[in-house]
Amino acid sequence: MQLQNEIDSLGSSNIQIRNWKEEADECWALSTQNAPLTTILEIGLFESSQRLALDARGWLETSGTSVQMAFTLYICRSIPQIIIKHYELSFRQCSIESRASPSSASCVETVSITRQNNTTNVSGDLRIPFRKFTNRNISPNNQLERDLFTPGHKLQRLGEKVWRLQGFI
């Protein structure tokens, strides 16, 4: 998509947003000076899926954050199972109306990768919205720009690689 000059991978980075501090397992930012982060990946092999969800919420809900999306990848240690969740901000649904409805992070997509009877199953593809990843709309003049898709067969290979390292395969 010719984004190599627009997006930088910052790897595992310690990030501080006001009083909140966290280390991302992987993060991406715009390729500008003092670039705002757009996307975070948290991987949990020794963390619970609940802890990963709290981390995702922190990245998205902390006042002053520029993060548009947070992805969590939970790797189960006892069975061959990987759960990928995609979080974004959404408006809170509450019965009391106010002028300022605070946003909250919610899971907008879940993909599970499992293995039973020597067969790997993937529940779907993973979609990463271009606009939120790059912090801009798709250019009508560039046909390469579109939402990023990771098809199920690539997620299957990822799962099987992880499970070989874990000794499940």
Rank of each mutant, 00 (worst) to 15 (best):
I84F: 00
K21P: 06
Q166N: 10
L10H: 07
I7C: 04
L30V: 11
S9V: 06
P80I: 10
G44Y: 04
I75C: 02
C107A: 02
H86T: 08
R57M: 10
Q2Y: 08
C76A: 15
S63A: 13
E22V: 11
F130M: 08
L3V: 07
Q156S: 14
E23T: 13
N142Y: 08
V162A: 04
W20C: 02
K161T: 15
T119N: 08
E47F: 00
F168W: 00
T38K: 03
I82R: 05
A56G: 02
T150K: 03
W20P: 07
S139K: 00
G159V: 07
S123E: 04
L45T: 12
E145D: 09
E22I: 09
E61C: 01
E61G: 08
D55K: 09
K154L: 15
R157S: 15
T134K: 05
F168D: 01
Y87R: 02
T65A: 06
N137K: 11
P36S: 11
R18V: 09
A100K: 13
S101E: 08
T120G: 03
I43N: 05
E145S: 05
G44W: 00
I75V: 15
D147A: 00
I113T: 08
K154F: 14
T150A: 12
T62A: 04
I83M: 01
P36K: 06
N141D: 15
F133C: 01
E145M: 05
L144K: 09
Y87V: 02
R99K: 15
F130L: 01
R115M: 14
Q68N: 15
G58P: 01
L37V: 12
T65Y: 09
P36C: 05
H153I: 12
A56R: 08
E22W: 00
I43D: 04
N137P: 02
T120H: 03
L41P: 01
R127K: 14
K21A: 12
E160Q: 13
N135Y: 06
P151S: 10
T39Y: 06
F149T: 11
A35R: 05
L45N: 05
L3I: 10
T150W: 11
L41Q: 02
I138K: 10
C76M: 10
Y74G: 07
R57F: 03
P102S: 08
C94I: 13
K21H: 10
L155Y: 04
L54W: 06
E97R: 13
I75P: 01
A100Y: 13
I82T: 05
F91V: 12
I83V: 14
T119C: 11
L144T: 12
